[in-house]
Design a protein around this nucleic acid. Structure first.
Lengths: 234, 234
DNA sequence: ACCCGTTGTGTGACTAGGTCACTGATTGGC
DNA sequence: GCCAATCAGTGACCTAGTCACACAACGGGT
C-alpha cells in the first residue's frame, strides 16, 4: 500500500470518495500541501438524503460542510408559516452559516434543507479552527464564502423591499427552468419568493395570457423566454 | 498599588486614548496578553466626523474598525433612491462587513455611514490577518460578530417580508426614542424601514389620532408608550 | 372502475402598502 | 421680509397580501 494512491487517484470512481475533491473548490486549489493533507485526512465525506434538515432553529451542526454534490436550500421561516428562500448552496461551495452556527452560539431563524441527495465533506469544528489559524489560503476561502452569502442576503433584501413581484417571478422562472420546464407548484414558488400562493397564481395566469408560459399541474413551461426576459430586466 | 485598579478604572479621562479600550469589547477581555499587546500597539485610534461614508459601493476600507464611541448606520441603497437600514454598529462592537469588504473583494450594495462623530480603533488588514491566525479568542470574536450581523440581516428580511408596517413603525419609535422624543423626519423614518414617506405620514397620523404620539416638524413625541407597545408586540 | 382524501389551482371581495401628483406649511438664510 | 429649501398632508390609483371559498386533478384502496 503506497501513500501516493491518495494523491493521484487513477480512473476515478465515485469522485467524492477521492481526496482530490479539494480541487473542486474555487479558492482551495492553491492550499498549502500540509494543509491540504489535514483537510483530506481529518474531514469525512458524508451522504445525506434529500429533504433532510441540515441545520435550523435549535439544530446547529458540529461540522462545517463543503458541498461535493447536490444542493442545499437555505430559507427563512416565519411564525405564520410563510417562508422565503435566502440562497442555495451548490456543489463546490461551502455552507458558511453552518460555521456561524457552530462558532457563535446564536440561534438562527433560518434553516438549511437538502434539496437533493447530498455528498459533502464534513470538517469538525476543531479541525476548522485549526485550519483557519494555520492557513492563510483557507482563511481567505472562509471569508470569501461569508462575503458571498452576505451579498446574497443583500440581494434578497433589495428584491423583497424594492422590486415588483412580476419581475421577481419572471427572473425566478428563467433562473430555475434550465430545460425550459420548471417543476414547482404555485405554493413552492410563493415560498421561494416570500409571497402568497394566490399572488403567484394570478401572475402566472397573466404570463400565460401573454403567451410567455404554459401551465400544468406542478409545472411551468417557458414558451417565450424573450418575453419573460424583457420583463425580468426592466 | 493593587492590581484591582486596572479592573475598576477611576475618574476616566478620554477613554479612547487609553490602551484599555480592548476591555470595552465583550469577547476581547480574555485575550492572550501577547495578542492584547499586538492589538494595542499595531492598531490606531481614529476619529471620524458625523455623516462620513465609511464604506460603500466602490469604497472598501483597508482597516477593520472597532467602534469605541458613536454609532455607524449600515444601510442598503436601491437604484430608485429608496433605502433600508440594515443595522447599527454601536460602541463596543465591530463593523465586520468592513472586514468582509477588506478580505473578499466583492462589492456590496450597502454602505456604512457615521451617524455621530466617531472614535474607533482601526486594525490594518495585515494585522487583522495576523490576529485571526494567532489568537483563538480573537477568532471567536470575529466569528461571533459575523454571526450577530447575519442574524440582524435575517431579522430585517423577516420584518420586511412578513410584518406589517404599523407594527414595525411602532417598534422603531419605541426603540429609537430613548428620551420619549424621537428626532426624525417622516422621510428618515421611511428610509429606516424601507418604505415610502407617505406611508409613514399616514401611519403617524393614525398613531396621533389614537393619542399615542404627538408630532412636530422633525419630531415624534411618545404620549402613550403602552399603546405603542401593545401594537408593537402583536 | 369507482370512491375519496389529498393536493393543486382559480376567483372575488377586501385590506394594506406603494406611487404619483399635487398642495400648503415651516424654516433658515440673505 | 422674502425666497428657496425642506417637511408634511392628501386623494386617486395601482400592486400585493389575506380570507374564504369552489373546484379540478391525482393517487391509492377495494
Amino acid at each position: 500500500m503506497h501513500e501516493d494512491a491518495a494523491e493521484e487517484p487513477p480512473a476515478m470512481p465515485a469522485i467524492a470518495e477521492q481526496h482530490d475533491w479539494i480541487d473542486r473548490f474555487e479558492g482551495l486549489s492553491r492550499l498549502e500541501p500540509r494543509i491540504r493533507d489535514v483537510l483530506s485526512t481529518r474531514s469525512q465525506v458524508i451522504r445525506v438524503p434529500a429533504n433532510t434538515v441540515i441545520f435550523g432553529p435549535g439544530k446547529s451542526p458540529d461540522n462545517m460542510l463543503l458541498l461535493l454534490d447536490g444542493t442545499v436550500r437555505v430559507q427563512q421561516l416565519a411564525e405564520n408559516g410563510r417562508e422565503v428562500v435566502l440562497y442555495r448552496v451548490t456543489a463546490g461551495e461551502s455552507c458558511v452559516l453552518t460555521t456561524a452556527c457552530m462558532l457563535a452560539y446564536e440561534d438562527y431563524a433560518a434553516e438549511g434543507v437538502a434539496e437533493t441527495d447530498i455528498v459533502a465533506a464534513a470538517i469538525p469544528r476543531a479541525v476548522f479552527d485549526d485550519l483557519v489559524s494555520s492557513s492563510k489560503e483557507f482563511r481567505n476561502f472562509v471569508f470569501r464564502a461569508y462575503s458571498r452569502r452576505i451579498t446574497d442576503l443583500f440581494h434578497v433584501i433589495e428584491d423583497i423591499a424594492f422590486r415588483r413581484m412580476d419581475i421577481r417571478l419572471a427572473q425566478k422562472i428563467i433562473e430555475r427552468a434550465d430545460t425550459g420546464v420548471l417543476r414547482a407548484t404555485h405554493a413552492q414558488l410563493a415560498a421561494e419568493l416570500g409571497t402568497a400562493r394566490e399572488v403567484i397564481s394570478r401572475q402566472l395566469a397573466e404570463f400565460q395570457r401573454r403567451g410567455w408560459i404554459a401551465q400544468g399541474r406542478g409545472t411551468v413551461e417557458i414558451l417565450d423566454c424573450d418575453g419573460l426576459r424583457k420583463l425580468a430586466e426592466s
